[in-house]
Amino acid sequence: MTDTAIQLQGVTKRYGELQVLKGIDLSVPAGRFVAVIGKSGSGKSTLLAVMSGLEKADGGDVLLAGENLSGHSEARMAELRRRTIGFVFQSFNLIPSLSALDNVLLPTFFDGDAAASRARAVSLLEQVGLGGRLHHRPSQLSGGEQQRVAIARALVGHPKILLADEPTGNLDAETGADVLGLLLDMTRINGATLLIVTHDLDIAARADMKIEMKDGRILNGHA
């Protein structure tokens, strides 16, 4: 097991004419809380996409927990996301037809032990304060509650790395602060590395490490 959770070397990415990532070098030690900041359109979300293999980098290498993503098949990438990465999105992205519990269970679909998965999902929902809302659908939950479900879902597979793209962007300040606190606590409890893309400088201030992006480049390597 390596001590470097995320490592990027000379990563480039373009959409048509637009060069979105212009050679990113980055190394995030395991267990840290990293904030990625920068202007809109600077490539923050794209960076997350490339890290998670949801978008393929055009050039350079991405290593997650020591594993180089280049050449991975779609199925292999999916497995890596399932085992290594948890996602939290700005717009929650819960499945509207499923209850909170089923949403959390969704990533465990391929794990053998259904009873253990269920116990973990219930316990995570209890930890995020939704022990009484297991069978509610997303439409029956508030934004903050939905994001808590999303956090539980991101953690259900014991990920080493948690990627969050403006997780509080759709929440009011107070709820956002609660959710962030929860995210930090839960990450710490689970011993994961947390990388948050945010516009919120207060959040950035609390991070172990701050990465500022501009125009597809990282301005500063470390904070």
């Binding site: 949801l54 199925a75 999916a78 399932r82 990465i85 996602f87 391929f110 879902r153 991101a154 597979g157």
Partner: peptide, 10 residues
Amino acid sequence: VLQAIGWPWR
């Protein structure tokens, strides 16, 4: 979303 949380496309 299913892909993002680790469902292979198949």
